[in-house]
Design a protein around this nucleic acid. Structure first.
Lengths: 252, 252
DNA sequence: AAGTGGTCTAGACCACTAA
DNA sequence: TAGTGGTCTAGACCACTTT
C-alpha cells in the first residue's frame, strides 16, 4: 500500500490539475485558506503539500501574491571545441566570445561581469591542473547574463605561469580574436568535460538568483595543450531551468 | 541585510558543523529535542531547518533512526561513440554492453532489467525521430543497477520499421557483438546529445529509489544513420548522486 | 484595507528502530 | 520500552502585494 497521507493526497490532486493544464503555467494556485476549506485540512498540512510541489519544480511562491505554476524556457548551450578557437561554426562574432555569439543566435541579449583574481587552488582545481592544493592560481570569474538576468557562472582557472603577463590577467570583458589561450601560446588540443547534477550551494543560489529547488549542472572542462599538460580548468554552473547542454558527436 | 530567521540561523549553524567535518558523512545529527533545547526553538522550527539542509542534499532522515549526514560516491559514465559500435576503447567486453564493461572497469558489478514494448511516441521522442506524435514506436526500457542498487534508467526508442524483425525486439539482456543497430542495418554515424538537470518525476524517483532532493540529469541521445535519418533516441535518467557524465573532446 | 504567504509556537498521536 | 522522526491540528503575528 502506498503511503497516502493527507499531505500526499492534496499534493497529488494539485499535481494532476497542473499536469492536465487546468492551472496553466504562470497562473495562480488556489490560496491556502481556499485549500484548507476544500480539503478540510490545517494550514500546515496545505503548506506541506505546496512545498512538495515546489520541490518538484512545479510551483513557486511569491510573497503577498500567492503560489504560481512555474514555466521553463531553457536556452541551448553547446560547449563545442570551436569556442576555444575563438570562432564558431555558423555565426560571425564581432567582438564577442563564443557564448555571447551563441546567445545572440538564439535571439537574446548577452552580457557578462568579469573579475580576475589570484587564489589558492581548491582541491577540485588542483587535481585537474596537476598542481599541489593551495598553490596560487589565476581565476577569471564570469557571471553571464541573458536579457539582464543571471544565466550561468563560468570560472576559469590557470596555472600562474600560463596566465602571467598575458591578456588573461586583464579584468573586464576582454575579447581576443583567436582566443585567449592561443594568444598566450597555449593552444588546447584536447578537452575532458565532466558533468554532474547537484543542488546549488547557498552562494551559487544567491549569485544566480535561483528559485528554490532549482538543480544545477556542474560542468568542468579541463583543457590540455599539445604537450598533454592541463593549462586551464573551467567550472561552469548551469541552472537546469535555463540550460540545455548540447554535444554533437561524430563517429568518424 | 540578509534574511536571518531563526530557521535560517539554525540551518546555517548546522551547515557549518557539517562543512567543517565536526559531523562527518554518515554520522547522526543531534536529535530534534536536543536541537529544540540548544536553540530554544519549537519542534516545527527545528524541522524546518533540517528540511533546508535536506533540500541542499546535505542530510537525509531515516525514520526511527535520526537525521544522517549524506555521502556521495558517483561513478563516471562516458557516453562516447564507441558504445554504439559495440566495442570500447580499452576494455574487452565479453558478452556485456559498453555500459556494463565501463562499470566493471570501475570495480563494481552491473546488472540490468530490460523490457520491450510498442508505445505511442511522446512529443519529445516524436520530434527527434521526425515522426508524428502518437505514431507507434518501439521502446526498450532498461533499469540499470550497480551492485544491486538502481543506478540509471535508459529507454531507447526506435521507429517501428527500423526495429521490426531484428534483435532489438527481443526482451531480456541481449548482447549483439558489433551493436544492435549495426546488426539491424542502421549503423549510426552522428549523435546529438542534450543534457539538462531537473528534479525527478514521482515515477523516476520511485523506480530509482532516490533519496529526497536528489536532482537528475536527463540525457537525450539522438543517433543518425549515413543518410542523415534519426534512427534511435535514448533517454537516460542519471541521478546526480551517482553519476559523473564525461566527454572527451578532441580539437582535431 | 484586505488578502497573500512566511515564521513561530505548543501540543498531540503515530510508525519505525534500537536496546 | 524508550527514543527517533512523520503527520496533523490550532492559533498567533508578521511583511508584502494589490485594490
Amino acid at each position: 500500500m502506498a503511503t497516502t497521507s493527507k499531505t500526499e493526497r492534496i499534493a497529488e490532486a494539485l499535481r494532476t490539475e497542473i499536469a492536465e493544464g487546468r492551472i496553466p503555467p504562470g497562473a495562480r494556485m488556489p490560496s491556502e485558506p481556499a485549500l484548507m476549506e476544500q480539503y478540510s485540512a490545517a494550514r500546515g498540512t496545505v503548506r506541506e503539500a505546496m512545498k512538495i510541489l515546489a520541490n518538484d519544480g512545479l510551483v513557486i511562491s511569491e510573497t503577498g501574491l500567492g503560489w504560481l505554476v512555474r514555466q521553463y524556457n531553457p536556452l541551448t548551450w553547446e560547449p563545442g571545441v570551436f569556442e576555444h578557437q575563438g570562432r564558431r561554426r555558423d555565426t560571425p562574432n564581432n567582438g564577442q566570445d563564443a557564448w555571447a555569439a551563441d546567445v545572440i543566435a538564439q535571439g537574446r541579449t548577452p552580457s557578462q561581469d568579469v573579475q580576475v583574481a589570484l587564489v589558492p587552488a581548491l582541491t577540485v582545481v588542483a587535481e585537474r591542473l596537476h598542481v599541489d592544493p593551495e598553490t596560487t592560481v589565476v581565476v577569471r570569474r564570469r557571471l553571464r547574463k541573458v536579457d539582464g538576468t543571471p544565466w550561468q557562472l563560468a570560472d576559469s582557472y590557470y596555472p600562474e605561469d600560463v596566465a602571467a603577463g598575458t591578456a588573461i590577467m586583464e579584468p573586464g570583458d576582454t575579447f581576443v580574436p583567436g582566443g585567449l589561450m592561443r594568444s598566450a601560446g597555449h593552444a588546447q588540443v584536447r578537452f575532458r568535460d565532466e558533468i554532474r547534477a547537484r543542488p546549488p550551494t547557498r552562494e551559487e543560489s544567491a549569485r544566480l538568483q535561483l528559485p528554490p529547488a532549482t538543480p544545477i549542472d556542474q560542468h568542468i572542462r579541463t583543457g590540455y595543450n599539445e604537450a598533454g599538460r592541463p593549462v586551464r580548468v573551467i567550472i561552469t554552473i548551469a541552472p537546469g531551468d535555463r540550460h540545455v547542454i548540447v554535444y554533437d558527436v561524430s563517429a568518424k
